[in-house]
Nucleic acid binder design. Structure first.
Lengths: 206, 206
DNA sequence: GTCTATACTCTGATAGAC
DNA sequence: GTCTATCAGAGTATAGAC
């Protein structure tokens, strides 16, 4: 309700970060209801009451994580330049999204778990910011198609396919590695595969 | 430990089914730890002790669900015929997998949640049956590529891409619908989009 | 087979000493 | 700022009446 008091000491800042990192670890593995403050406190190396000194409730910790997340998650799509060369821009987006999945798998799983459970704590953000950005970029894609610079496909489902294919490697990491077996670099292989896939999908035919 | 006593009365059989259906509902929404016996019992229309008369523990209910699941889940891939026409067989697989996601979204989400959490209760099944089937079908795909009947791409990642793209529409249903807005039929649109995608990916170029 | 009652543990959160 | 102690409620599971 009240504006957040920002002046925090170094130790406060540091502890908040430690807690959020621990919470990300635990929430991403067990979901909101499955996660416990005991676990989070243990991973953070703090006592449970001390954790609750920094955040008023379990819900509050979760909310801070989610709030910061969506923005980062949409950055790669935002960076798709309407003035650039279409195929190059789309492949660039795929590459950035895949890198994000590789470098921030816990964030990806936190997000996935939230959506999987019906997005009870993200509904507005999804129906607001997310939808607006997709609608905007879909318009760019349609223009490129109208100009005959890429194949005509459903632009929103094209974006869905990029999300699905990149996040799969973070969210289903266990399955991917179990099936591939040892001696593989899933993300490197995915990068090559996805470049081929989207190039063939979008390059104009003969 | 002991072989399961199979002779069950009609009412027992019926109640087991009611419980498993309720459990699927609740587990798929909240994950194993987030689900409670209270919720499951309520959805099933039974008392909690009565539920525990049919299953010895929460863990046991979850296990029965998962055990039955993987087999059903792999059926569409099993049905891909090595003797058929390659592109037709692959598109048929995509279609069957998408239909499964549309008709059994709860099962899809249960599976997704389990993998997301590191597959603590499915590890062996994934490293065993699942891996074996994928390896087998990958060999079929490679043969088709060797024979010059479809484009050469990484066969295992091709299978991954089918999983990712079809399950996305079940697992992220909330997000898909929020972005598309009203007046859309996500699965129908996905069917057309995916047919285009895999046809363009796999058809031999000029 | 089904219910009420209850044992016992875990979990989120608070009080108050230091 | 951090800790010990503790509470109230929810959670899994069992006992035992009917």
């Amino acid at each position: 309700m009240s504006p957040i008091a920002q002046p925090r000491s170094r130790i406060q800042q540091k502890n908040r970060e430690v807690i959020l990192d621990a919470a990300l670890e635990v929430f991403s593995l067990h979901g909101f209801r499955g996660a416990t403050l005991d676990q989070i406190a243990e991973v953070a190396g703090l006592s449970k009451p001390n954790l609750l000194y920094y955040f008023p409730s379990k819900e509050a910790v979760h909310k801070v994580l989610l709030t910061g997340l969506l923005d980062t998650w949409l950055d790669p799509l935002r960076a798709m330049d309407p003035k650039g060369e279409p195929l190059r821009e789309i492949l660039g987006y795929v590459r950035r999204k895949l890198d994000l999945a590789r470098d921030y798998p816990r964030e990806s799983r936190l997000f996935a778990g939230e959506i999987l459970q019906g997005a009870p704590r993200m509904r507005e953000a999804i129906e607001g910011d997310l939808r607006a950005l997709v609608t905007d970029k879909a318009r760019v894609l349609i223009r490129w198609m109208d100009e005959g610079r890429i194949t005509r496909v459903d632009p929103v489902h094209l974006i869905f396919s990029i999300w699905a294919l990149t996040q799969h490697y973070a969210d289903f990491d266990v399955q991917v590695r179990a099936v591939l077996g040892p001696g593989h670099d899933p993300f490197a292989e995915a990068g090559r595969f996805l470049e081929t896939l989207f190039t063939r999908l979008l390059s104009l035919g003969p």
